[in-house]
Design a protein around this nucleic acid. Structure first.
Lengths: 346, 346
DNA sequence: GGACGAAGCTGAAGCGCTTCAAAATCTTCC
DNA sequence: GGAAGATTTTGAAGCGCTTCAGCTTCGTCC
């Protein structure tokens, strides 16, 4: 930067101003500085910058599970919002590993980022407390555990479960099955509670609950296989799962065993993951709009950064039903792509 | 840090040493410093640290497409390797947007990261030249464009195409179809060339090529639909695609139209994406082992950082056939629970 | 007992930037 | 023409750390 100043024939302070608040610098100096920067290929050192300024323009996002496209959507939403505010977003993937999650929080803490978006798994939030004690700003995404002392963006999991079950009931299904994951996960328990509420409300509907240990499609296949062997009156006519992955396993196994989805059994998943549209039939699901979660979370964080009388708040987003073939049948098929042309042999 | 020094009753320099090279400090001082750090909740400022030291322990990874699980695997591999060397890995997702890709390179450049892993798709490498001119170290992943002036880890795309076609031919298939994406993508062109080589080598096999504009499952469905309407002798008995996504569309549409996969038509994809195991039948594919690519790339980068007489080299990994139901039939069904990743709920 | 080297410790210089008070320059208006 | 005010520019102080030369302390050996 010294070199830039020398080449431009101005002082160091002027270069700094030209770079950061161009409006406070005369046209002439600005032009000279810009030319010098160009000529020298000068790149500001962000370490020095944030050291001197005491603030960085980078926001960190710690994600639990980059395999779940919900988190990817959250990242995208956050990124879009960050870019508008001229902040950069850096991602750290903890891969469902608690220690890594904590260590990334520390890395962002040490980097003195402007703030942290934290999309944790079902874990303790001790890391959050630690970095917040250092004055780091943190917004929770997807899991709030009822905290009121920082901002959060969550999705109404109970309502999502309710909506899914309600949808099946409205389709006339009466023997529902909830193919759930381990109940230690807060979100899963809530979704099940919501489903239960819809069922109780309806009166003449039953809800069977099968818990599986992991959220993998294998587990869905196992459940479907077991169902297929039942006597007809014990076969459910509607299945809901708190995980698209399990739902995909269920659907594919049912189809392999000559059940018709949704005619014999309607199936609905949860999360609107990428592969809901890549499955044999497009899957109905409950969408949490990760993009919106990410962008709202970033908005809250930016407010906390910029607004001195910021108030912490928790934003609860309503999930949305996405209805496709696995409950509606062919009429639920997404509209064909209109921009594609007919393939031609080469 | 000054406070830590005061509380511990030692000098600033000693605190720094205690933190960075504990072996050069006496037990007594070390203990005192540790206690003080603990008591004060001191967190080193990495901006100041990298400013003073002139080097950071962070590596940046710029990814093109976080939706493609290959890149996610690359990130994982890189992370594992980085952690072993006590470096942190920060991700930036450019979402196939050239400007964003460039701007993330600049951000890492400004942050004076120890090095950058760059996994571009098909873009020009001008940003790479720019940051390398500033002395930033860059390792290319997944695309090298024949550059010899920096390290790279790539996969032999031509060989992958060859292997896929060869596999179909060995299964006895004679009328092959290559359902490809836009040929502007280097990787896709190479894969097609490989397939062509296998076909020419075999002699009595034909290869039809259908190009689609985008790498989406819709396109695969369209191709399958068109095929289904053909007269029997024009229907291929083996389909290979440079994208799992397209292959998934093909498989599902064929099944919907009562073709048997693989009996009537065997299908093989490319990339071993996540959903190859979530499809109606598990898909055969060509795997590039993203994890290995990421970890080898990080290894090369670390060597470049630490080893003064580092030699640039390009590592070409051989792809690997993953054979599953879509070409082998039920005997290709994967063993349950073999991939061991435990996803979390959203 | 004294010389010597190793081990540990200290404090100051400096990394590249921002910012602020003060100085320099330009405008305006009577 | 000149004073008051507005706009620019300047240079130095300092952000929190690492590092290095030099200092102190201690153990060893003849």
């Amino acid at each position: 930067m010294k070199d830039v100043a020398r080449l431009a024939g101005v002082s160091l302070g002027t270069v700094s101003h030209a770079l950061n608040k161009p409006e406070k610098v005369s046209e002439r100096s600005l032009a000279k500085v810009r030319a010098a920067v160009e000529q020298l290929g000068f790149v500001p050192n962000s370490a020095a910058r944030s050291l001197a300024a005491g603030a960085s323009r980078t926001v960190g996002l710690v994600l639990t599970d980059i395999d779940n496209s919900l988190f990817v959507d959250i990242a995208r939403g956050a990124e879009d919002q960050a870019r508008r505010a001229a902040h950069a977003l850096l991602l750290a993937n903890s891969d469902i590993d608690f220690n890594r999650q904590e260590s990334y929080l520390d890395i962002f803490d040490e980097a003195r980022v402007a703030g942290i978006l934290f999309a944790p798994m079902n874990a303790s939030l001790e890391g959050v407390d630690r970095v917040r004690r250092h004055g780091r700003r943190v917004v929770l995404v997807n899991l709030a555990q009822g905290r009121k002392d920082c901002c959060a963006v969550i999705s109404d999991e109970e309502l999502g479960g309710y909506m899914a079950a309600r949808h099946l009931i409205e389709l006339g299904r009466r023997r529902l099955l909830f193919a759930g994951g381990p109940e230690e996960f807060y979100a899963i328990k809530e979704r099940r509670n919501g489903a239960l509420r819809a069922v109780l409300e309806a009166g003449d509907v039953t809800l069977e609950i099968i818990n599986c240990r992991r959220l993998k499609s294998d587990e869905g296949r196992k459940i479907a296989a077991e169902i297929a062997n039942r006597s007809p009156e014990r076969i459910p006519d509607g299945i809901l799962s708190p995980s698209d992955r399990i739902a995909a396993g269920v659907i594919h196994e049912l189809m392999a065993r000559s059940f018709s989805v949704p005619d014999d059994i309607a199936v609905i998943g949860y999360d609107n993951n990428q592969f809901t549209t890549e499955a044999a039939i497009s899957m109905s699901t409950v969408s949490q709009d990760g993009h919106r979660m990410g962008s709202e979370a970033m908005r809250l964080l930016l407010d906390e950064i910029e607004n001195p009388d910021h108030q912490h708040r928790t934003l609860t987003l309503e999930p949305r039903l996405i209805l496709r073939e696995s409950t509606l049948g062919p009429r639920g098929k997404p509209l064909p792509d209109t921009d594609g042309r007919a393939p031609a042999p080469a």
